[in-house]
Write a protein that binds this DNA or RNA. Structure first.
Lengths: 244, 244
DNA sequence: CGGGTAATTGACCCGGGTCAACAGCAGTGG
DNA sequence: CCACTGCTGTTGACCCGGGTCAATTACCCG
């Protein structure tokens, strides 16, 4: 039951115990509970704080004038919603809960007080990875076929989940609906369903009842042409590691 | 002939003359010239500095194992290539010149010396806008039809160009080739060509000889369902404006 | 004049969208 | 306890937007 933000940042650099205490404190104060499907942010809102996802999954999305929706990101435990976004007048996207959610609200002052050199670098690394993920989504939707695309999203979520929590040999909770996957992948729910069926039939995924397992990771990564380099999970900030 | 980075940042907040002098100095030292098509960064390279585009256009892209290429961004004068990217071990994308390029190489130390409170906020704003653009590309490729998508890209570049230089009533230099537009839009060059023909026939764009004009901006924005909010160009940091 | 790159056009085809029906299941109220 | 409703997932039949392939034109630039 470790703090997922700490787990994630320590994929970059080992934090000091002081830093861990600070982050733990922030993740347990000013908690807000949000029901499934409810909104955290509406497009056009002013952002008054940085929301840290503590428990549950969310997604952010944009809608076109005629109602078409594109999910632009999934937010997992340990993810920050729009760090520094409070310097803008209004949010350019909406954020809604996929599951019941617990978020910690960090005021701009609290967020900017995370200013130890190591934490600053770790939070910058997190922001760079977030950007890299958004780039990869562009590649995914722009170039991969429906089957590859579906597999790639599953793999990305798999790797991101792995870096925030203990690995469960039996798989992962995977609470997103097919309509949400579809809107994230730029395809229809019907076709998403068919792609998932193929992946199941080929024994590349074991997905059901909001639970996912990947029996043959290498095969799925090969199919999706998945290259994890964009997640920058190789302890890239090891030279900053805390000693204690 | 003003510094395009200054023009851009002043869409957020008015800089002090000291800050403008500092940015001008950085944009005229350690210049590097790059021929059209040449690479600035290869995927996998370690980033040793922050490149500031001073003159010319570039694009960044990723390639899949089988050669498919997705352009993930166009870089215009005043754009920074991967600010803070030097904290990563390696770049997850490549950057290449679209036209002959002049870039200023900022060392990490020089870049981090841009630490006046106002500049820090302005650079954060720029990074937030860059992220918002990448999100919008996801929406564009995921949800818009080929025609809407083509129009949207043209409009985005139009607005970004406007914010870095004087408006030219006769239009803009628009040096990208149709194959590049195609790879940015996740479609084929053949189809991109057909979409451009439609836009020309409908008198929504006037494009030829590397030069673009938009005779009826409102009509094109309507077709593309273009909402400029994600570019955050409304002088959102006015409360930070310098007095001098 | 020749060679290479970019734009254009036509003919054909397929991946994924659309539409519609149906099944499974959880919640809810009588 | 069961009927009813609504949401999610599943399947089938049909169709179209955009891809593929190939040929042609239009420029540069040497």
């Amino acid at each position: 039951m470790t703090n997922p933000l700490i787990s994630k940042l320590e994929r970059f650099t080992r934090l000091s115990s002081d830093e861990r205490v600070t982050l733990d404190a922030l993740a347990s104060r000013k908690l807000r509970r949000i029901r499934s499907r409810e909104h955290l942010i509406h497009e056009g809102d002013r952002l008054t704080c940085v929301n840290l996802i503590v428990v549950g999954w969310a997604h952010s999305y944009k809608v076109l004038a005629d109602g078409r929706r594109q999910i632009v990101a999934f937010l997992l435990p340990g993810d920050l919603c729009d760090p520094h976004g409070y310097i803008l007048n209004e949010s350019d996207h909406s954020i809604a809960a996929v599951t019941p959610l617990t978020v910690a609200q960090l005021s701009p002052e609290e967020f900017e007080a995370l200013n130890s050199p190591r934490l600053v670098q770790a939070l910058r690394w997190d922001a760079l990875v977030t950007s890299a993920i958004q780039r990869e989504w562009t590649v995914n939707i722009g170039q991969r076929s429906a089957l590859e695309r579906t597999a790639h999203l599953i793999l990305e979520l798999f790797h991101r989940l792995e870096s925030i929590g203990p690995i469960n040999a039996k798989g992962y909770d995977f609470p997103i609906r097919q309509t949400e996957m579809a809107d994230a992948l730029g395809m229809t729910a019907v076709h998403t369903n068919r792609m998932l069926q193929i992946l199941r039939k080929e024994h590349l995924i074991d997905l059901g009842d909001k639970h996912l397992a990947i029996p043959d990771l290498a095969a799925l990564e090969c199919l999706a042409m998945f290259n994890p380099n964009y997640l920058h999970l190789q302890h890239e900030g090891h030279h900053l590691d805390a000693k204690d």
